[in-house]
Structure formats: structure tokens, C-alpha cells
Simulated scan of single mutants.
Amino acid sequence: MTLRKWFHLFWTTLLLGGAAGGITGILLSAADKEFAILGVSGMGYNVMWMIIGGATISVLSQMGFFAYLIVRFIVMGIIRNKWTWDFLQILFVLIALFDLVYLRYTNFAQGETIWGYMVLPLIMLIVALATAYWKAKLTNKNGFVPTLFFMLAVTSMEAVPALKLNSSASTLYMLIPLIVCNAWQILILHKILADKKEPA
């Protein structure tokens, strides 16, 4: 990857993160009057901080993406069998789904049933499957499992600060820009590398 291509990926992801953070923040503010970034009540000032927050989340997303690419490169050098690597990624996806339900339920539930804690993981799974299907269509079928793993397991790890809070607004504010940025990066990677057959 050349410096010019990396700049393109960085700035487009940053802009998407800022836009996603701003839009998500405005929608959350409209739904919940108490939702504010840094406790600021002025709408214009608050929107500015929402955009900055979304851009900051996009940088976290980019760090996670490059960490994933490095780990993937190292692991594929160690595990030569593609089937084994795919199996491990699917196993990590299942563990991430279980943790998203069980750990949040055991930490935050106060008389509620576990079903309410399955909504977020289910939505994340649907988005991850849709992104993986799209990636496979853009490249080839070998891109499906790595994309599913990245969109679910890696996104879950990146979102840990928000998932530790028992706040739907905070979780959504962090997760939506993360998902948008992660999907953008994984879907555009083959074009950035100019190799349509290279799965990410």
C-alpha cells in the first residue's frame, strides 16, 4: 500500500466517522433530551463535538483494522491450512456473540430477561453477514469469513468502552460510527490494493 492510498483510506474513513457520529448524535439527542457530549447543552456546539467524537471513533476503527491485517498476516504464516483459519475465525465470532449477550446480561440485568440483551448482538450479526456477503460479491467467496470475523469480533473488541456502560445511547453512539468505518475499510480494501481477487 502506497502512502497516497493510505491517505485516501484515512481521510475517507475519518469523514465517514465524523458524519456517522454527527448524524447518530443528532438522532440520539432528538430521541433523548438528556443525551449530550461532554455535558454541553448548546445544540450547535454539541453537534460539533458529536462530529469530532465520530472522527475520533474512526481513528480507533482504523487502528483496529490495521491491527487485524497484521495479525491476519502473521497467523496465515503460521496456520497454512485455510480451513483451520476459517474455523478459528468462526469460533471467535461465536465467542464474541456469546460474550455480547452473557457478559452484558450478568453485569447489567436487574430483573430483566436475557432476551433483551440479544437484540444488539443479533443486529450486529445481521450487519456483519450483510457486509460479508457484499464483500464476497465484490471479490470472491474467500472474503466472506474474514469479513464476518472483522465486522463482528473485531468491532466488538473496539466497542468495549461503550459496552461497559449500561447506556443504550452511549453504546449506539460508539457502535454506529465503528460499524460504518469498519464496513467501509473492509469493502474498499481490494480497490485500495488494486487486486480484486484478494480477500480481506
Rank of each mutant, 00 (worst) to 15 (best):
T2G: 12
L9W: 05
F10P: 00
T12D: 06
G17V: 04
I23L: 11
D32H: 09
K33I: 04
F35E: 09
I37L: 11
G42F: 09
M43I: 15
W49N: 11
I52K: 03
G53I: 07
G54E: 00
A55C: 03
L60W: 11
S61R: 06
S61T: 12
Q62K: 13
M63T: 14
A67V: 13
L69E: 11
R72S: 07
F73V: 01
V75P: 12
V75T: 15
G77H: 09
I79G: 01
D86T: 08
F92R: 08
L97N: 04
L100E: 02
L103R: 15
F108P: 12
T113S: 14
G116R: 13
L122K: 01
L122R: 00
I126C: 10
I126T: 10
A128M: 05
A130F: 10
A136C: 00
K137T: 12
N140E: 06
K141D: 02
P146Y: 02
L152A: 03
S156Q: 07
A159F: 04
A159N: 10
K164M: 10
L165H: 07
A169C: 00
T171Q: 11
T171P: 00
L178Q: 02
C181R: 10
A183G: 13
W184Y: 15
I186Q: 09
L187E: 07
L187W: 11
I192N: 01
E198Y: 10
P199K: 06
A200C: 10
